[in-house]
Write a protein that binds this DNA or RNA. Structure first.
Lengths: 241, 241
DNA sequence: GGGCGGCGGGTTGTCCGACAACCTCAGGTG
DNA sequence: CACCTGAGGTTGTCGGACAACCCGCCGCCC
């Protein structure tokens, strides 16, 4: 959950209810069990249940009504969008296609001064530079350019072992969980971005110029991802108070 | 806040603390007063305070640590981005520039079948069609195209009274609060979008193809906003659990 | 002197029981 | 039929208590 510590009882309940809601156990708009019932079911006090429900409320999964009950919010068709941090690979797989990665460059080099400033790290930091293409069912979806601080990588790091999703590598190999991304969005038209067999074929892109952090605000990576216009569905859920 | 009802005590506390945090009353990373202190200060029970702090936690404004305290999260420079629903006008003003609106069309007409399907309303719905340019210090920032159901507008509606921000019109004149937007993002290259004095000058845009809702999921508007690439800083804060 | 461990105070997490505020709906009343 | 009233159920708030946890102090031991 949001807090830093281990796992609290409320967290467990949040996870359980999240899974049920997303899994469709409750029809959209239907009532959640009352707090008293949830107490019995999870064997915790009402204070704990209230904490969990409060979180689901703030997250927008449910809505509470004083004196009535709490209801699962009828979500529009698209659940998560661009505002949700997540692996591109994963979202491709979710759309029923098979993701692929083709690496063109995996080299260690010192950071240039302007890059260091953009990333907010010392100028002499050593980074791993990646260039790759991300594909879905063989079609190029995005051209990506990433810089990852050497200090995050294992002592004995072999660039060859980085073959698939960078996101998955962080999660599974390094035990690092990217949870925050700060991106700038641009429309880009250029024939110099695409390379490989499709060089020059794509020329219109959505650029995500992005800094990645974990929950402690440690800088994890700087990436520029050029999504081929039309090849990737970009959704965005926007909210206000 | 998130819940539907009036205003709860916890809501008031959330607002007060939000204002203080955003206003910089607490240094980033510093401690929030303890729950006990907040109880005394607001004259409420700990249950209420905990509800408020929980919300701030989930919203990412603070972070609680069991046995230590709760701390305001050190926010990166950019606070809100594209994922935050809000008036374009407002964000222009926030950047220190003066927003302007130039309307080219304000007409009532019935909806076309494909538009109706996209908006999820009956095919014969009458809508107000708007075409306008949004400027900052006189420079065009975006070309916008909006459709608003006639049923939301006052009985006696004069198109001429809609002169500035549509967002502000909703809030102030109609008492309607847009809180949710579902957008598709595209990169667009075309010479046929810009009109007026700058016709043909702009040809690269970021398109936000968006449906607006209020908190009860009532459809408020369908809009296509073409942001002139480079004229508007697009930030996006992405998060995961 | 330096390192280790325990202890105490402070803070958040959870529990319990109770009441207030609020909504719904059935039934009565005019 | 319209309106009021009340009972019952649900969330919001209250008060007090204890558990789990973190930190720093202090004394003990080597």
């Amino acid at each position: 959950m949001v807090s830093t510590s281990r796992r609290t009882l409320a967290d467990d309940i949040v996870r359980a209810l999240k899974a049920e809601i997303r899994g469709g156990s409750y029809a959209p708009g239907s009532r959640l069990p009352t707090e008293a019932e949830l107490c019995r079911r999870f064997g915790v006090s009402r204070a704990t249940v209230r904490g969990a429900v409060k979180e689901l409320d703030v997250l927008g999964l449910v809505r509470t009504q004083h004196g009535v009950g709490t209801f699962v919010t009828p979500r529009p068709a698209v659940r998560d969008g661009l505002e949700r941090m997540g692996s591109i690979t994963e979202s491709i797989r979710a759309s029923g296609k098979i993701p692929g990665h083709e690496y063109a460059r995996r080299t260690l080099r010192p950071l240039l001064p302007d890059e260091a400033e953009r990333m907010g790290v010392p100028p002499d930091t050593e980074v791993l530079e990646l260039r790759r293409r991300i594909t879905a069912d063989g079609d190029v979806v995005a051209y990506s350019y990433d810089l990852i601080p050497r200090s995050l990588l294992p002592e004995r790091f072999d660039p060859e072992e980085l073959t698939g999703s960078v996101f998955a590598y962080f999660e599974n190999r390094l035990g690092i969980h990217p949870t925050l991304g700060m991106a700038k969005v641009h429309a880009v038209e250029s024939v110099h971005i695409a390379w490989g067999p499709d060089a020059g074929k794509h020329r219109l892109f959505i650029l995500l110029d992005q800094l990645h952090y974990d929950r402690t605000h440690r800088m994890l990576a700087y990436s520029r991802t050029y999504f081929v216009e039309g090849a990737y569905e970009f959704h965005l859920v926007r909210t206000s108070d």
